[in-house]
């Protein structure tokens, strides 16, 4: 591997131990190079402008500016810089909110270094990436049923007027995109998804990109950002 082919990374993470661990894990791969790191969202925007990394690994909770806003600002000025949100927040609200950043990939902190490496390579090539855990939260958020509604089901059998009308959820995804999303949740690779749905690899990738694009502008995602920023969650 020659020097020029290395992927230049920037790590944006407020927890020092996590940042160090991440750096060590990633630098084991000979084609990855960490050229900058920071715990501060505002600083991340400046560093991105100065250092022009190929790809940024971004946390949500940061000093001064959250990772969602930082990603937006970085993408506005440097559309070619790729961003992977690596969230340590597992709450549905935080994960849904992170989708508003317009990042290229979404992973959770418990993702193994091998998986993260795959995500980095794929995103660096221009593809979108959604980890199965994040995909599951998305699916649950849009298609899940409230527990209270399910429990009611058991007690309302004799009800003459069904209170449980199957409302069609307002979902921005097409049938095909939903199928792709479900297979991602099942842990299938793009290759496997293509084989299963009889579509080309390129088409699978287009679907994943389109899923992320649609989710980033959806009302529910925007509402999650608002709720998250209003919540007591401290960054």
């Amino acid at each position: 591997m020659t020097e020029t082919k290395k992927i230049k990374l920037m790590l944006v993470e407020d927890h020092a131990l996590t940042r160090i661990g991440l750096k060590v894990s990633l630098e084991k791969y000979s084609n990855l190079e960490v050229i900058a790191e920071t715990e501060n969202g505002k600083k991340a925007v400046e560093l991105a402008n100065e250092n022009k990394p190929d790809l940024i690994i971004m946390d949500i909770g940061l000093v001064e500016m959250d990772g969602i806003e930082a990603t937006k600002q970085i993408k506005e000025k440097n559309p070619t810089i790729k961003v992977i949100m690596l969230t340590s927040h597992e709450g549905e609200r935080e994960i849904m909110a992170s989708l508003a950043s317009g990042a290229d990939g979404y992973c959770l902190k418990d993702t193994s270094p091998e998986q993260l490496y795959k995500a980095i390579e794929s995103v660096n090539e221009g593809n979108a990436w959604l980890s199965s855990q994040v995909a599951e939260k998305v699916l649950r958020n849009y298609y899940g049923k409230d527990i209270s509604q399910i429990k009611q089901n058991g007690t309302s059998h004799n009800h003459s007027t069904p209170i449980l009308q199957n409302k069609i959820p307002v979902v921005p995804l097409s049938e095909r995109e939903l199928e792709v999303l479900k297979l991602i949740v099942d842990g299938k690779s793009n290759q496997e998804i293509g084989e299963k749905l009889f579509i080309t690899l390129a088409t699978v990738k287009t679907h994943v990109r389109s899923i992320l694009n649609k989710l980033s502008v959806d009302d529910r995602t925007q509402a999650a950002v608002k709720a998250m920023r209003e919540g007591i969650v401290t960054f």
């Binding site: 996590t18 160090i20 661990g21 909770g61 709450g91 969650v233 401290t234």
Partner: peptide, 22 residues
């Protein structure tokens, strides 16, 4: 409680996960 749990999830798990890797 939900907000608190969300904060706790993050604050309790982050150092544990960080330590695991290190």
């Amino acid at each position: 409680l939900e907000d608190l749990v969300s904060t706790l999830t993050h604050d309790l798990k982050t150092p544990l996960l960080g330590a695991e890797v290190s």
